[in-house]
């Protein structure tokens, strides 16, 4: 068989494989959207869920998901930045660093249900935070931290060594070189990673079932004092998120329109995650363009 023929066959095979994958993914996405979107309305997005009758919404769950996401990112962003900067810029290349890097890698492949049970034992039981947003946010931090740290580390490592030399040779201290030259240059990559991490957190259910809880008590949206028990901002209240809600009504929901609520909630979840992904791409590109001035 001649080389050109071989090349053609290989190309066709590769096209077929990737085409099949795209087809499966597109079908899945279209199915979720087609099944769910007809049920999505302003009322559905803003009203509380109903346990026994039709017509409930996902308002509280949606708010819980967003609030939990913000809290989790507030905790995990600075920690992952610090850890990533240390690992990439300061840690000596020895067995201890390699050990930590391997540990982070293993941690990042930990099943999220294990993270959830760990969070249950530590935060819910041991620290007595109960089923709460705080427990959930901490569990999500554990779930997210390894990936974010690796992302920060890799983004920093991809900045060329000549930039470090340029900073140091200019009479900047090592800390100034890192914070004023290397981190700004790695910012597009870091930001993209953070937004993608946020999307992953938003869709996470298993890590939250045993930490943030499975109930969504009614919220009083007129009182934003975080210490008031029904306040939306109270971090110690239980908070069922959108993803947990989907899991729960599918396993034990008894409202008559359970299929519709589940489909609608799924569509909303997929759309929000999609928005995170698209904005990550757009924002990363925009930031890179702004900093490099290239077209």
């Amino acid at each position: 068989m001649n080389v050109r023929r071989q090349d053609k066959i290989a190309t066709v095979v590769l096209y077929l494989i990737s085409g099949t994958i795209i087809l499966i993914l597109a079908a899945l996405l279209l199915y979720i959207l087609a099944a769910g979107l007809p049920h999505v309305s302003w009322h559905f997005l803003t009203s509380p869920a109903r346990a026994f009758e039709a017509g409930g919404g996902i308002g509280i769950q949606l708010f819980n998901s967003l609030y939990l996401l913000v809290l989790a990112m507030l905790i995990s962003m600075p920690v992952s930045l610090g850890a990533g900067i240390y690992l990439s810029e300061y840690a000596k290349k020895n067995w201890r660093t390699t050990f930590v890097q391997t540990a982070i890698e293993i941690l990042s492949s930990l099943p999220s249900v294990v993270v959830g049970l760990f969070g249950f034992l530590i935060f819910v039981v041991q620290f007595k935070f109960g089923f709460s947003i705080l427990s959930g946010a901490l569990a999500l931090t554990f779930f997210n931290l390894p990936l974010l740290t690796r992302n920060v580390e890799e983004s920093l490592a991809s900045v060329q060594g000549s930039q470090r030399e340029a900073g140091l040779a200019l009479g900047l201290s090592r800390f100034e070189t890192v914070t004023r030259v290397i981190v700004p240059e790695a910012l597009p990559g870091i930001t993209t990673g953070m937004i993608l991490g946020a999307g992953r957190v938003f869709g996470e259910a298993a890590a939250l079932i045993y930490t943030a809880g499975q109930s969504a008590p009614a919220l009083d949206f007129s009182n934003w004092n975080p210490f008031y028990i029904a306040s939306p901002l109270n971090p110690l209240r239980p908070a069922e998120t959108l993803a947990v809600h989907i899991w729960k009504i599918n396993s034990e929901g008894i409202m008559p329109d359970v299929a519709a609520v589940s489909a609608g909630a799924s569509a909303v979840l997929v759309i929000v995650v999609l928005l995170f992904n698209l904005s990550a791409r757009w924002f990363g590109k925009w930031l890179f363009k702004k900093m490099t001035g290239g077209d």
Binding site: Q160, E165, L170, G171, E185
Partner: peptide
Amino acid sequence: IVELRKEVGMVFQQPNPFPFS
């Protein structure tokens, strides 16, 4: 060392401007 490098500046083989203005 930081003071030294302010008195003894260096230019490298590959142009390495920072990706700023």
